[in-house]
Computed example of a mutant assay.
Amino acid sequence: MTENSDTPDGTAPGTTGPGATAPGPQPEPIRFFGTTWVAHDGNYGLRRAGAAVGSLVAAVASCFVLRFAYQGLEIADVGSFVGLLVVLMFAICSAVAFRKTWEGFSRRPADPAREDTLRGLKTVGFIGSLLAYFFRTFTEAPGEKLRRAEYEAAQVRFAKRRSSRTGNPSARKAAKAKKPRRK
């Protein structure tokens, strides 16, 4: 969420010219959706359908790749114990990755350092992350609810800050000084 930062072309928000934006907070773009989630415009529905199909196709293709890897282990005759460990590892990592990805759509992580340590686990369980993305696209753009709440809160803070600063404070002080006091 950007609240009054410079625009990419170097102009301040609210100024005229190319790339000028309205003053105040700007919505945070979501991957594959940009800022179309704000007003559900710009082929938002098609983007959601495309994201759902794309994540499901990627998950299915990933399952085939893992199947070929497992068949390679069988060909190498490493034993049933190693095969069982590989299957358990991918199942557990996928379950954890699904849960963490799903939670990431509704709230920001409390400890970003902990999330960085889980990055490897989520990479191994990439199928879980793809499936979480697939299921979330049925209700919204993944992360839309969180970003909408943050964006609306930023707009309220901006409006409150803006309304409390109307007028020139030094002019108010001068007007108070000119009024005679009653005794």
Rank of each mutant, 00 (worst) to 15 (best):
W102L: 02
E150V: 01
I127G: 03
A61P: 01
A22C: 05
F105N: 04
F98K: 01
R182M: 10
R99Q: 10
A76Q: 13
D77P: 00
T137K: 06
A153R: 05
R165A: 11
A177Q: 15
G104F: 06
V57L: 15
A113K: 11
G104K: 04
D9N: 15
L121A: 08
A110K: 15
G10K: 08
V57C: 12
K100T: 14
A171T: 09
R119G: 03
G72K: 07
T101C: 12
F98D: 05
F138A: 12
A20I: 00
T137Y: 04
G45Q: 12
K100R: 15
S164L: 04
D41P: 00
T123Q: 07
R147L: 13
D9F: 06
R182K: 15
L121C: 12
Y151N: 00
C63L: 15
A175L: 12
G45E: 15
V53C: 07
T101P: 05
T35W: 01
L56A: 14
I127L: 13
A177Y: 03
A174M: 08
A177D: 14
Y151L: 01
L88A: 10
F33I: 00
L73G: 08
T137L: 07
K145H: 09
F135Q: 03
L88G: 07
T137F: 02
L88Q: 07
G143W: 04
E103S: 13
T15M: 09
R148N: 03
V57P: 06
K179H: 11
P180N: 10
I30L: 15
W102H: 12
P18I: 09
N168G: 03
V82R: 12
E103I: 02
